[in-house]
Simulated scan of single mutants.
Amino acid sequence: MLTHAIQHVGDDLPLEPQGATNFIAFRQAIDAFPWADEHAQWDERQEGPFPALVLQNAAEQRQLWVTALSADLAGEYQLQSVSMQLRKGFFGKAKMEQDATVVDAHDRTEVDRLCELFCDAQYEALDREVERLAARASDD
């Protein structure tokens, strides 16, 4: 089941659960979130995590964290794709390890694309798109 949660400025884990969601509902949550207020609080504190909305698929052990870097929702975003990946360890023994990749999105279209891939459980395409955005950042 696909759910979403909120991380407010200064909140430590656990996240504030918001219940079941889908792509349309999550887009609406991004639009309705009080980004300006949250960023004003962060500007005062200058510590702790930025606000974020988090898409979650517990069964697949996946999350997609979305943070608007300003109140202007047409502007910059930071996303973090989190998943559990099977990795070979010492002596060829595989174990599950958390993989987290942080990328910047330059506009809402990129954010929507990643969210849609996540909501449609198109994780291979999501991972490729995250890798592309990460490579773009290293080229800049």
Rank of each mutant, 00 (worst) to 15 (best):
I30N: 02
W65F: 15
H8N: 13
P34H: 03
R45E: 12
A137S: 15
E16G: 00
A36N: 04
W35Y: 03
Q7R: 15
D120H: 13
S70G: 09
L73I: 08
I24L: 10
D140T: 09
Q98N: 03
T67N: 11
G75E: 09
V54T: 14
D31V: 06
F33A: 05
A25T: 11
Q61R: 15
G10Y: 10
I30Y: 02
D139N: 12
A135G: 10
L79A: 05
R27S: 13
R27E: 14
L13V: 07
L2N: 08
F33W: 07
V9H: 10
E60S: 12
G48M: 05
L53I: 13
T101N: 06
E129K: 10
L126I: 06
K95E: 13
R87N: 03
R62T: 08
Q80S: 06
A135Y: 04
N22P: 04
Q41I: 11
C119P: 06
N57M: 00
S138I: 10
Y77F: 15
R62G: 01
A68R: 01
A125N: 08
G48I: 03
D12R: 13
D127I: 06
P49F: 05
R27W: 02
L53P: 07
L114P: 07
Q46I: 07
V130I: 15
V54I: 15
Q56I: 15
T109F: 00
D107L: 00
P14E: 11
A135C: 03
A5I: 05
R87F: 02
D120A: 15
I30H: 02
A121P: 00
A125F: 05
L133A: 11
A134E: 12
S70L: 05
E44D: 12
E129L: 11
F33V: 03
D112W: 07
S70A: 12
E44V: 09
A100Y: 00
A59M: 09
D127F: 08
F50S: 09
E60A: 15
F91D: 13
L15T: 07
K88E: 15
E97D: 12
E76W: 01
Y77A: 01
Q56N: 08
D104S: 11
R136K: 14
A74M: 05
L79C: 06
A29N: 03
V54N: 06
P51V: 09
D72M: 04
D104H: 09
A134Y: 09
V103N: 04
E38R: 07
R128E: 15
A135D: 14
A74I: 02
D112P: 02
L13H: 09
A68H: 01
I24Q: 13
D140H: 08
L64I: 09
P17C: 07
E47I: 02
Q56S: 14
A105Y: 01
